[in-house]
Write a protein that binds this DNA or RNA. Structure first.
Lengths: 218, 218
DNA sequence: ACCTGAACACCGTTCAAGT
DNA sequence: ACCTGAACACCGTTCAAGT
């Protein structure tokens, strides 16, 4: 604390705001993971006292919402402005999934946090809904369609987050011979990430096509 | 603490073990949610000191693994013993999803926790893999297929966990007219849970069929 | 308006001491 | 072998006091 003192006479510049706090928080998560994001740690990085943060955010939860909105801003939904809806959907889903994989630790937050005071998130949904509606989707079908796609995206990204040895049966192996054979066959086989990607693509296509058929969109 | 004293002379009966601890922990989660599960709270319910728990579990994380394995034991994979693989897969996925919806708060734990010392979880996978392999799935295709289905299951259950007003755009509404229209149309429409169920079914069928085709399984 | 410093009510975990 | 009680190093949050 002593070494942290400003030179005398230099005016204190207010430095704390949503953007700066969000940025610092994201950097902590990137370098040391979500559990490392504590109010103390965040305050330290901003050269400030933990209690100072509460002049700008009402809670740690609110800061988490800022982070999620910031991340959602990285999802590219621009294809909906120009491309046919199938291509746009595929491009958007791929980008969404990439972003989720890059921030896998936060998926459960992304999936469950309320869309409140989240301009980037709202902007993304606006783009997607506009594109779908222009393509002939009735309004009432848009959100369910989006939500179902998000299901698949979150789940698929989870597979990337799961530890590589998530399927190690350990002591139980002798009573589960087929399971063990499957685990070993997978390990000898192709890159799991590659397989994961391919299955994501298969599932996505299957869902998009069957939805289109059911909704009568062409 | 004073009122908690045992009658003098009654021998102390060892009462703590994996099953008892898991049970108590699950009851706390059921009644008051995952955040309510603290070592102190758990010890209280077992009429014991928090530190006593560490004679049976090495950490809270281990207790969480016990809980997850206990929950996985509720997933019904028995159809794989008797039914054709398509029907078995559908029944298993439906049961799996029901269980996840009932324990939505724990989905991220279920999805990411290692399968270690988890007899019920291993038993479930053994059943599924056996059924798929008997139906003609090569071993190396089993786990990717299962993992992709789990993706969809977790994601779909997440939709049930998400707060009803997750799509409330708030102040941003005026700049997102299409999004707002979609939100309103959804609210006026059918029961969201019903729609969610239907989309789960569509996605599941689509994925199962396209996988079968790709793997050459009939 | 914004920040500090002290305090509060918690966490999970460790460990010497008891039986 | 198993439990207690005290202690440790943390959490997020509040609030009077300063500027």
């Amino acid at each position: 604390m002593v070494g942290n003192r400003r030179p005398a006479g230099r005016p204190r510049t207010r430095i704390l705001n949503r953007e700066v706090i969000t940025d610092a928080a994201r950097r902590i998560i990137t370098s040391d993971g979500v559990p490392a994001l504590t109010m103390t740690r965040l305050a330290q990085r901003l050269s400030v006292t933990p209690s100072a943060l509460y002049n700008h955010a009402t809670s740690k939860q609110e800061i988490l919402r800022w982070i999620v909105d910031s991340i959602m801003g990285e999802v590219d939904a621009s294809a909906f402005d120009t491309e046919p809806w199938r291509e746009a959907t595929r491009a958007w889903a791929a980008s969404y999934r990439d972003v989720m994989v890059a921030h896998a630790e936060l998926i459960s937050s992304v999936a469950t946090i309320e869309v409140i005071d989240s301009p980037r998130t709202v902007a993304m949904y606006e783009r997607v809904v506009s594109g779908l509606h222009r393509a002939g989707f009735p309004f009432e079908a848009c959100l369910p369609f989006i939500a179902a796609l998000e299901s698949f995206i979150y789940g698929s990204a989870f597979n990337e987050l799961a530890p590589a040895d998530i399927f190690d049966p350990g002591d139980e192996g002798d009573v589960a011979p087929n399971f063990v054979a499957a685990v070993e066959a997978s390990q000898r086989g192709r890159n799991p990430r590659e397989i994961n990607d391919e299955l994501f693509d298969i599932g996505l296509t299957a869902f998009v096509e069957s939805s289109a058929e059911r909704l009568g969109v062409c």
